[in-house]
Amino acid sequence: MPTYNITVNGDKKAVDASPETPLLWVLRDHLDLVGTKYGCGIGQCGACTIHLDGTATRSCLLPVSTAEGKNITTIEGLSDNGDHPVQEAWKAVDVPQCGYCQAGQIMTASAFLKDNPNPSESEIREAMHGNICRCASYNRIEKAVAMAAEKMS
């Protein structure tokens, strides 16, 4: 089984996995970083969203072999103390219900706001449209992204 050298949250890791193994399962099963969630495995729900060189990426569709040499950020590495403006906004708005999809929502929102720090309401709705929340906490997700944007700009 080949060894892949990947950089996760600033740490270099060597993992033995078959080349097509999605990064999602490498993170969860090989590296014990379980904050990144499995939801659908086909890039439809966004629960597995991570940052790949700063870009929001679905880790369930990303073979580990293509992640070599790239900087991977997961929810565990988004901030040192859970105090990224997006995480702070999630607290302030009391977003989660079951909470399962929220890591993916936060990773999508934080990458989006880096590229677009002053989004309109419709831009927020469009940016977050790819992430499913089965508890339908959408009103609060929208509000928290707007609040984080305000803090960041």
């Binding site: 970083l33 929810i75 859970g82 999630w90 607290k91 909470g99 929220q102 890591a103």
Partner: peptide, 12 residues
Amino acid sequence: INVDMEKIITGK
């Protein structure tokens, strides 16, 4: 706020 908030938003 949700008592599991910190764990949820930091991926514990």
